[in-house]
């Protein structure tokens, strides 16, 4: 499926998705509330069959926190990027997709660890790299650590 038909097909199931500028992949911004629902549809529709989540990353856009899902279909060889964003920097949370793509379990833990984004219904949401009592979320842009980060 090329990007145009893919876009049309996805707008069918998610009419409120917005396209974002990206040269490489079709990038769609999805409403956070329907993420889990759409993830199941993306994976299980036979013509989409996005069964491989090859990257899940958190991004801090200063005003917003976002989670970016890079999806790929091993069957149809097409790729898609979906994004969810939230304005809430104090208590950001999204639904987990780790029951859809199992690899998300670790990646979501990492995102929680580094950005403080909570994933609802995640089976084991703990810090993965840092200690349990670590203060702050290091990959956020406003993170200050005078001990470990040395400015040249």
């Amino acid at each position: 499926m090329d990007n145009e038909t893919l876009k049309a097909r996805i707008l069918e199931i998610a009419p409120d998705a917005q396209q974002e500028e990206n040269k490489q992949f079709l990038t769609l911004l999805l409403p956070a509330a329907r993420l889990h629902d759409l993830a199941i549809k993306l994976k299980n529709s036979p013509d989409l069959a996005f069964d491989f989540l090859f990257c899940l990353s958190g991004v801090d856009y200063i005003k917003q926190l976002a989670v970016v899902y890079h999806l790929r279909s091993t069957q149809h060889k097409h790729a898609l990027v979906i994004k969810v964003k939230t304005d809430d920097r104090v208590n950001p949370n999204f639904d987990t997709v780790c029951d859809v793509w199992r690899t998300a379990e670790f990646h979501e833990r990492e995102t929680y660890d580094m950005f403080g984004i909570r994933f609802n219904n995640h089976p084991d949401l703990r810090r993965i790299f840092l200690e349990e009592d670590w203060k702050g979320y290091p990959l956020r842009k406003d993170y200050i650590d005078e001990v470990n980060i040395v400015e040249f």
Binding site: C55, S57, H70, E110
Partner: peptide, 26 residues
Amino acid sequence: GLYVVSDGNKTPYRMKFRTPSFSNLS
């Protein structure tokens, strides 16, 4: 996988490595 968000500066705004061992460990 190497995911880069650039804001036009000489340093990347966000650089994420999707490393194989991390997924393989899971």
